[in-house]
Design a protein around this nucleic acid. Structure first.
Lengths: 144, 144
DNA sequence: TATGTGCATGGACAGCCTTGACCGCGCAAT
DNA sequence: ATTGCGCGGTCAAGGCTGTCCATGCACATA
């Protein structure tokens, strides 16, 4: 993992579909060694994959909400049930258990406010053991 | 935006480096029309780009913390200064202004706990106007 | 000095992409 | 029924890429 590897990674993060010859010329290598490095980075798990990034609005996921959830108990059955059910919801794009408060951090991606209201009452608050929930609406993205 | 477009998008999100011929066969098209659709989706901004996904640990960003920040005042100069300075920090991978409390949501990606402590005291709390900060450490990722 | 690592170069082959043109089908409007 | 339009299928030519190989060189290390 030297500066050439980092340059390759930076380029591939910026443009995941760049051709090997173009990538090589951008980082100051020729195609052969460049390809070897990329394959090594992939094999080592440094590069996990390549993905298209899609406009959320175009796929009905333009309304994003950060949701904090507390459970009313830490009883094992309640915890595992909640985690399984919430993780299975496709509107849940990120789902973490936290140390301390709140118990859970969820990122919800739905089409609009109505969709969120429906999701929150119908999908989340109907799960057994869900206590306090707190929704945080984004005013503006300042980065990312 | 029909079911073919959605299938193409799903495939490209899953594997952003799939070849056009392979993509076409997966969604049940031939190469020509498939390429036309991909180009249209790109031109329309539905597909924003293609990016490699990198193991955070391999690039010194394996320790992620969710950080809530409140400012001591909503004075315009303080607000704009804070937003500009925080957005410029490379450890900040996501940065939103929220409605209500807290004022700001930040995602911080550093190497380890020591790096976070240094970041928090040296980079965030030293910005003028920063009041209450609250760090949320992830216990485990349940999705995403 | 001997060795291992990593890169440059050149060549070669198979395969893919791109582009364009032309054809046929289904559907909606007239 | 007919016309026009949108969309997919097919075909072909040309260029480029990905991949692999062998060889030689520079550099750090033992």
């Amino acid at each position: 993992m030297d500066s050439l590897d980092r340059a390759i990674i930076d380029e591939l993060v910026r443009d995941g579909r760049v051709t090997n010859v173009e990538l090589a010329s951008r980082v100051g290598l020729t195609a052969g060694p460049c390809l070897r490095r990329v394959q090594r980075l992939e094999a080592d798990g440094v590069i996990r994959g390549y993905h298209a990034s899609v406009d959320p609005h175009a796929v009905g996921r333009g309304f994003e909400v950060i949701l904090h959830v507390d459970l009313v108990t830490q009883e094992a059955a309640v915890v595992t049930d909640f985690e399984r059910e919430a993780a299975a919801l496709e509107e849940v794009s990120e789902f973490k258990r936290l140390f301390g408060t709140p118990d859970y951090f969820l990122r919800i991606a739905v089409a609009d406010l109505a969709g969120y209201e429906e999701f929150l009452t119908g999908r989340i608050m109907s799960i057994r053991g869900v206590g306090k929930v707190s929704s945080h609406f984004s005013m503006k993205n300042l980065k990312g």
